[in-house]
Computed example of a mutant assay.
Amino acid sequence: MSEPAASPPRRQIYGRRRGRKLTQKREDRMQQRLPELCFDLPPPPQTIDLQGVFGEAPERLWLEIGFGVGDHLFAQAQNNPDVHFLGVEPFLYGVSNLVDAIVDAEAAGDAGPLRHIRLLTDDARLLLKVLPDASLERAFILFPDPWPKKRHNWRRIVNADTLADLARCMKPGGELRLATDVPDYARWMLRFATSAPGFAWMAEKAADWRERPADWLSSKYERKARAAGRSCWYFRFRRL
């Protein structure tokens, strides 16, 4: 008797999807340009064809889960023109902000971000299930929704299952970066990431997790936290 086919991963997106109403200019840009930046996911156990996604085989691939308004992702793409980026964000106003930045850069003669960034407006966990083994050089989960109520903690994107998927997808020596301004989530991140097989915490002194490294670019959410007087924690883990 053949084994039953594995059920596909279940989509789990919580919270708002749209936010404030988009201006007509942003609506037009989203309709015109978002389709060429987005990609479809194959059903597991198939793996995604990254060459088909980008139009070329990426030698270096970075992933940002929950890119917010896209300022960190866009800045990283500008600073690292030899890297290809996958960005995941279901909040459509944030996606429109990144689309705006990419189109403006293209109009100014910088086609790099448009060529090297691809977006998914869906659940990041679905992407992790179909990425090829050892395909990611770096991954970011920066200031994710903390789901502070205890009964909602299980919704947090940093968990054992997500870290296991990231470990499979990341290259040996690759780097996972996590950040939060919520003390309870900082403890949560450390608890799960330090116990996850395949990752080693890179901190050697307190400044390594209290201060943002020079190549760790600031984002809107970090600046908002700092302006409110909140501390931020920056965790780096190496894929073994």
Score class of each variant (00 low, 15 high):
residue 8 P to G: 03
residue 44 P to N: 05
residue 223 R to I: 07
residue 56 E to N: 03
residue 103 V to Q: 13
residue 12 Q to A: 03
residue 18 R to K: 08
residue 113 P to V: 04
residue 126 L to H: 01
residue 234 Y to G: 07
residue 193 A to P: 00
residue 121 T to L: 06
residue 218 S to Q: 13
residue 30 M to W: 07
residue 111 A to E: 06
residue 199 F to K: 07
residue 142 L to G: 10
residue 58 P to S: 05
residue 206 A to G: 05
residue 16 R to I: 03
residue 111 A to T: 11
residue 123 D to H: 09
residue 85 F to V: 10
residue 146 P to R: 03
residue 63 L to K: 01
residue 154 W to D: 03
residue 97 N to D: 14
residue 237 F to R: 06
residue 113 P to Y: 04
residue 13 I to F: 01
residue 138 R to V: 06
residue 184 D to H: 12
residue 38 C to N: 02
residue 37 L to V: 07
residue 214 A to N: 03
residue 206 A to N: 12
residue 179 A to H: 10
residue 128 L to S: 00
residue 189 M to F: 15
residue 221 Y to F: 15
residue 233 W to R: 10
residue 30 M to Q: 13
residue 55 G to W: 02
residue 184 D to E: 15
residue 168 R to V: 01
residue 10 R to A: 07
residue 187 R to C: 08
residue 11 R to I: 07
residue 192 F to Y: 12
residue 126 L to N: 04
residue 18 R to G: 00
residue 14 Y to M: 01
residue 149 K to F: 03
residue 89 E to V: 07
residue 90 P to C: 05
residue 70 G to F: 05
residue 127 L to F: 02
residue 82 D to W: 02
residue 60 R to S: 13
residue 210 R to G: 14
residue 44 P to I: 02
residue 16 R to E: 09
residue 96 S to C: 05
residue 176 L to Y: 06
residue 36 E to R: 12
residue 227 A to K: 14
residue 159 N to C: 05
residue 1 M to S: 12
residue 118 R to Y: 05
residue 173 G to S: 05
residue 110 D to T: 01
residue 229 G to W: 05
residue 180 T to N: 05
residue 151 R to F: 08
residue 54 F to G: 03
residue 25 K to V: 15
residue 141 I to R: 03
residue 227 A to G: 06
residue 161 D to P: 00
residue 38 C to S: 14
residue 215 D to K: 10
residue 70 G to V: 07
residue 38 C to M: 12
residue 98 L to K: 11
residue 137 E to R: 13
residue 67 F to S: 09
residue 115 R to A: 13
residue 124 A to M: 02
residue 145 D to N: 14
residue 1 M to Q: 06
residue 18 R to W: 09
residue 232 C to R: 11
residue 83 V to Q: 12
residue 24 Q to I: 09
residue 120 L to E: 06
residue 33 R to T: 02
residue 5 A to V: 13
residue 158 V to W: 07
residue 65 I to P: 09
residue 207 A to Q: 15
residue 158 V to K: 08
residue 59 E to S: 13
residue 146 P to S: 04
residue 56 E to C: 08
residue 76 Q to L: 15
residue 228 A to K: 14
residue 41 L to M: 08
residue 57 A to G: 01
residue 116 H to F: 06
residue 86 L to V: 01
residue 149 K to V: 04
residue 168 R to F: 02
residue 81 P to K: 08
residue 80 N to H: 15
residue 202 M to S: 14
residue 151 R to Q: 14
residue 174 G to Q: 00
residue 51 Q to T: 15
residue 106 E to P: 01
residue 7 S to I: 03
residue 4 P to Q: 09
residue 174 G to Y: 02
residue 235 F to R: 01
residue 175 E to H: 10
residue 168 R to N: 00
residue 93 Y to N: 12
residue 30 M to Y: 08
residue 229 G to T: 06
residue 118 R to K: 14
residue 137 E to C: 14
residue 12 Q to M: 07
residue 79 N to D: 15
residue 138 R to E: 13
residue 34 L to K: 03
residue 99 V to R: 09
residue 38 C to K: 05
